[in-house]
Write a protein that binds this DNA or RNA. Structure first.
Length: 737
DNA sequence: CAGAGACTCGAGGAG
DNA sequence: CGAGTCTCTG
């Protein structure tokens, strides 16, 4: 029995084509991970040393999965294969060699929060119009430059003719200067600086080229220019580069992913062998053909069509809710029904949505039905205040030059050091070109700081004390020591609120994560722990085995699969998003459509698509028409389902075949049909649709519909005597009976 | 300096 | 609607 015996011919070719550039176009569910892992095993079988092999993925989860599968296939020596993400590979390289380009190798990694703080400082210092230059906006532009490998110098040159750009160039320069003096890199820098290192120091590049003779890149369609350049540099010597991707699943354009990387691969690497994997092993025919039908509406793509030998399967269920509550209720009830009547397990279900904000209503209804669920996204663990506080202590101990971390904790818990004092310290630091922390240590010598010097020195002494212990203490002990000295947890205990208890739990969770780190890693260190924390993604924490349904964004769902998938909020303005519809660029809607394709192809057996006629957004009620993507699914794959008639009637799903809907032949024609109006205020209704109500003149009737109408509700009530009446809730004085 | 209350403004997705 | 910022007061 040979490695490739149970692979299909195309997969086999992907495995055996082990030399030279290979472009593996792998459709959704076509077994690409399988090809990659077998390919690695085959290389080793052919006598390639494990340490000469590198496999790059985007998420830790993907790399962990690949590592496990490779371990199972290869056995001995597999630990020497570099299986890691772009970011962690770069960190590893930079820790060794970044000194060669003028950075300290103990750099810290800034997350978005930290970046924004630095950015705010820059904007404040430069005193630019804050309406024109928002931290987020400028950060986005700078990030885009880094993704395109455009340095401060290069950008400044290009910016010369444009006022706004030249302003941003100044911010970019200051921002980089601050990061450098804080001894910090942001996410984009991790890639950028590695490329810079390789470019400036060919000797270093050669070392890595010799090391990584066989390179594989997963999710290649999501690489940006910087990542591409990195791979190209590494592979240029031996040309043994295998990239795997699917242009139809490119959904990270907004993050700088350059779809040209996949479309032009053959031009960049001569004699590229192109292999297409088009057989899908995951979904039913119905689901797959629906996905094909949707994605065909995109103009810029490589033509292809996935096929499967799987059975027809069930129709795609489409549900229209009156509002997002009804939508959520439907999903929850349908899941309960499937679990109780069809014997499915909770873990078979995923609910997907376009934006994280949509998860709340869904959660409420799942809680109400006591359906166990896991939520990915939202406020991530490491972004919680208490966690960031503790982490900032660790960062400040590790790298006192990290002004952002030091400033964050200087008055946490309260030490009587206020904004005025902090400002003075900052001024002093700027004037002497020193770090914020250094100023603290000699604050008693500065006239301006005399009054608060005692507190400042006390704080700096405490940090120094902790620094000394790093050598001898594990991360767990260090955290406990911090909590001890600062009284952080004690303070929370005194609060004695639900929220405070939650925060204490989170801190305990952090400690156990640190303990787990210590157990798992060969040489645990504070650096290692900080690094790991900086680089975790949400999806990395997703556990397949837990028996609960899972809620996540469509973006997070890429690479996963579930027997039952709910795609929710399929409405114009939500999905496709308002921004993509109004940007004026068709490519933006095409990216949304690819996201839809990704969503549909997550489903193995049954796909539900739901949308709501109205939904609350930012305190406003929006009325959205159904998403164009619904119309792009041929109707014979679809059945429209009605809500299991709730409340008073039989709780049984009641499905009917959907009547002919006009099929929109061409896109572009679609207009938004999205608008907002004020939500009724000060009107409380104590009845809902289907309830009986009493009216002075008409007697008892049944509520048929409730529509917001300006600041009031228009209630349609059917009265047996007088027929249907439309009444304004505020004036009709309806009473529930 | 700290806390309370008013006020503004904004949510797309993620390593 | 809700998080984050601003302003006022003790």
């Amino acid at each position: 029995m040979h490695l490739v015996d149970h692979l299909n011919p195309m997969q086999k070719e992907g495995v055996l084509q082990s030399k030279g550039p290979v472009l593996l176009l792998a459709g959704a569910g076509s077994g690409k991970t399988r090809v990659l892992t077998h390919r690695i095993a085959y290389l080793i079988e052919q006598g390639v040393a494990p340490w000469n092999i590198m496999a790059i993925t985007f998420t830790n989860k993907a790399s962990k999965e690949m590592r496990e599968r490779v371990d199972a296939l290869v056995g001995q020596g597999s630990e020497d294969i570099w299986v890691s993400t772009f970011h962690s590979s770069c960190v590893r390289i930079l820790r060794r060699d970044i000194e060669k380009i003028g950075y300290d190798k103990n750099f810290v990694i800034y997350d978005m929060d930290d970046q924004e703080k630095v950015m705010r400082e820059c904007l404040k210092e430069l005193d630019f119009n804050e309406k024109l230059f928002t931290p987020k906006g400028v950060m986005g532009e700078i990030s885009a430059q880094k993704n395109e490998l455009i340095s401060v110098g290069e950008y400044t040159k290009r910016a010369a003719i444009d006022f706004r750009m030249s302003q941003i160039a100044k911010i970019y320069a200051l921002y980089q200067k601050k990061l450098h003096s804080n001894n910090a890199l942001d996410f984009d820098d991790l890639i950028f600086k590695t490329v810079e290192l390789f470019t400036l120091r060919p000797d270093v590049l050669t070392v890595y080229q010799e090391k990584f003779r066989y390179i594989m890149v997963d999710e290649y369609q999501d690489t940006n220019t910087a990542q591409y350049q990195l791979v190209k540099l590494l592979a240029s010597k031996y040309q043994n580069l295998c990239v795997v991707g699917d242009d139809d699943q490119s959904i990270y354009g907004w993050r700088g992913a350059n779809i040209r990387n996949i479309l032009d691969f053959e031009k960049d690497f001569k004699n590229t062998k192109v292999i297409k994997l088009e057989q899908n092993y995951r979904s039913t025919k119905t689901i797959l053909e629906a996905a094909n039908a949707v994605i065909q509406n995109n103009i810029s793509r490589k033509p292809k069509a996935l096929w499967t030998e799987n059975e027809e399967g069930k129709s795609i269920r489409i549900f229209k809710g009156m509002n997002e509550y009804e939508e959520a209720q439907y999903a929850a009830e349908e899941i309960v029904r499937q679990v109780e009547e069809e014997g499915r397990e909770y873990k078979d279900f995923a609910i997907l949505y376009r934006t994280n904000a949509q998860s709340r209503v869904l959660e409420e209804h799942l809680l109400r039905k006591t359906i166990p669920y896991r939520l990915l996204g939202g406020v991530r663990f490491y972004e919680r205040k208490e966690i960031k506080d503790i982490m900032s202590y660790l960062k400040a101990i590790y790298n006192p030059a990290d002004d952002i971390a030091v400033k964050r904790i200087i008055n946490i818990p309260k030490r009587g050091i206020g904004d005025t004092t902090i400002d003075k310290v900052m001024k002093q630091a700027a004037a002497t070109e020193s770090n914020f922390f250094d100023v603290l240590t000699y604050s008693d010598e500065i006239p301006d700081l005399q009054r608060s010097a005692k507190k400042l020195k006390e704080f700096s002494k405490m940090l120094i004390t902790l620094q000394v212990r790093v050598e001898t203490m594990s991360v767990v002990d260090l955290i406990e020591e911090i909590l001890n000295i600062t009284g952080y947890v004690r303070e929370l205990e005194l609060e004695n609120t639900e929220e405070a208890r939650g925060r204490i739990d989170n801190i305990k969770e952090l400690i156990s994560k640190a303990a787990d780190y210590k157990k798992r890693v060969d040489e645990p260190s504070l650096t290692g722990f900080l690094e790991e924390v900086s680089l975790v993604a949400d999806i990395d924490n997703y556990q397949e085995n837990a028996n609960s349904i899972v809620l996540m964004t469509l973006h997070s769902a890429k690479g996963l699969e579930f027997p039952y998938v709910f795609m929710t909020g399929l409405e114009e303005g939500i999905f496709p998003s308002y921004r993509s519809m109004t940007s004026g660029e068709e490519k933006d809607v095409e990216e949304e459509r690819r996201l839809c394709y990704v969503g549909i192809t997550r489903a193995r057996e049954v796909l539900y698509i739901t949308h709501a006629q109205s939904r609350m957004l930012r305190g406003m009620t929006q009325y959205n028409s159904p998403s164009r993507f619904i119309r792009e699914i041929p109707e014979h794959f679809v059945e429209e389902t009605k809500k299991p008639v709730v409340e008073k009637s039989v709780p049984k799903a009641n499905t009917t075949t959907r009547k002919a809907l006009p099929v929109q032949a061409r896109k572009f024609v679609q207009n938004a049909n999205t608008f907002t109006m004020p939500t009724p205020k000060n009107v409380v209704l104590n009845f809902g649709q289907g309830d009986a109500v009493q009216h002075k003149k008409f007697g008892v009737g049944t509520v048929q519909a409730i529509q917001p109408a300006g600041a009031d509700y228009e209630v349609t009530v059917f009265f047996p005597q007088s027929g249907a009446k439309k009444l304004m809730a505020q004036f009709s004085n309806l009473k529930s009976v």
